[in-house]
Each structure stands twice: as structure tokens, then as C-alpha cells.
Amino acid sequence: MQFDTQTSPHLAGENSVAAMMRQVLYALVPGTLALIWFFGWGVLINLVLATIFATALEALVMVLRKRPVKAALGDYSAVVTAWLLAVTMPPLSPWWLTLIAVFFAIVVAKHLYGGLGYNPFNPAMVGYVVCLISFPVQMTSWLAPSGLAEHSVGFLASLQTILTGQLPASLSWDAITMATPLDNLRTETSLGKTLSEIRAEPLYGSLAGQGWEWAANFFFLGGFWLLYKKIITWHVPVALIVSLGVMAALFSLGNPDNFPPPTFHIFSGGAILGAFFIATDPVSGATSPRGRIVFGAGVGVLTYIIRTWGGYPDGIAFAVLLMNMAAPTIDYYTKPRVFGHKPE
């Protein structure tokens, strides 16, 4: 009798890339629902568009690369990238902006570097940053959170705006958009207002911005799901949030009128989403436990620096890309001590 001869171990584990990516998608659901609740149907439409673009581009590139299309689509990595882009782009971004972001994420950042597993930079963040630098107006036109806007934008109006780039006649951009809390805070402090004056504005909630803080809370929930399912480890999120918090605490203690407290920084912008969903991208991040702490801390500190002194209101995307560059070096210097050997 003849048997097959594979090498050990002989029982395949139940883990798979697809299963991990699926868990990430599940974990994104609560935060995304919160975003839809506060910022309208545009978020959902963006999500659908980005997913379609990402899937189509992934398939196209795999065909061009003469690789199996089905396997690539089956690992859901393109969908995760699309989803991350959709929740970071402004809700009423025109369709072509989403397409450009997805194109740079999937085709340039991912496949030109060799596809899944070989990309040195976080694909979603590359797509986001390309658009942010090239189309700053569109990329900073965030809607006002529900309850603050003079008019809410319905489903059909959102769809029309995204597809044509034109608002329905009854609406104007000024009436529906509003600076994000991070953006607003920046402008106002530069005008010489103190923080307590600024925070009194209706844009702000108890921790950070109205609506924003709740979206962050729900992304937090998703992050805990990922930790619980052991898809990510605690190192990156904790290091990122702690370092961002420590930086904010140091400066706000020294000058509370100009520098917002840690809670504001942590619950504003993309900090929570970045800590649990973006900086934890295994491919482009550091890999050893200590390396992940360094990586996360680096993202946190850079985010604070960019937010406070840089040219852009939020710095998560830039911070992640900068740390991506440092990841191989971090890995080299944070090798764990091997069993039976002294630390190197």
C-alpha cells in the first residue's frame, strides 16, 4: 500500500488568513455603524464603492500577474483595505477620489511591491495619504455630525453627491460640512483662543468631538474583539495610546490653555482606529513583541508631533507610514532572547 509523504506537522491548524481578515471585518462593524449614524449614508456608499473598486482592482492585478484570482479574493485582504479607506475618507467624497485612493492602495502600495505579505507600507494609509496630499480640499470636507448640521443629507442626496460631485440644489457645502474637532482646535488656538473657550463650542463633546468620540468608542469595542480573538496582540494599541496620552499629558500639564488633554487626543480623529486596526497591520509593522511596543510608541509620538506642530490636522496616517519605514530596523534591534541563550 502506498501512502502520501508530507512533512510534519500532519494535522493542519484551523487558522487561516481569510479567517483572520474576516474577524477584522467583524470588528470594524460597530465603529462603522456609529460613523453612519453620525455622518450619514455617505459612509455606507463609500464603503460599498471602495469594496467594489478594491475587489475589481485586486482581480485585475492578479490576472495581469498571472496568479490565481480566486485565492487572492478569498483572503479578504483587499476588502479590509477598502473598508479601512472607506471609514477614513470624508463621507461625501466623490467616487473618483475613492477610486484613486483604492488604486494607490491596492495596485501601487500592495501589488507593485509583490502583493499580500510583501508590501512595506500600509496600503490603506498610502491610498489615504496620496489623496490627502493631492486633494486637500475634498479630503478635509467632513460633514458635521448629526445634531450639529443645519441640514441632514439623505440617502439619495448622498448617492447623487458622491456620483456627480454636485450637491442637490437645496443644500450647500457650507451648510453641511464642518471642520473636524482636530482641525477646528488647530485653527482656533492659532487665533489665540484658550482651550476652555474652544471646548465650549457645540462641536465638542465630553471627551473629544461630538459624534467622533462615539465612533472612537465603537472602534474601541471592535479593537477589544480583535484582542479577545487573538487576531492582534496588546502591544501596538497599548503602546500607541499610552505614548500619545503621555505626550498630550506632558504638554497640557505645562500649558493647559493651548494643549488639549490626553483624552481629547486619544478620542479624536483616527487615534483609536489607528491603534487597533491600522498600526496593527502585521505585514508592514514590526513583528517581535518588543518591536511592536517600539512601533506603536513611535506612531503615538509622531501622531502627536504632526497634530500639534505639523501641517495636517491628523497625523495617524503619516505616523504609520513613517514607522513602516523603521519597522525592519526595529525588528533587527528587538530580537527576543532565544531559549538557552543570553540576551544579545
Binding site: 488568513v17 499580500l116 496582540t233 505585514v283 517581535s288 527576543p336
Partner: peptide, 10 residues
């Protein structure tokens, strides 16, 4: 499939 450097192995 390609390694995604998830670090489960270590």
C-alpha cells in the same frame, strides 16, 4: 499562502 508576518508563530 504568503507570510503576512502576523507573528503567531513566535
Amino acid at each position: 499562502q504568503p507570510c503576512i508576518r502576523c507573528g503567531k508563530c513566535e
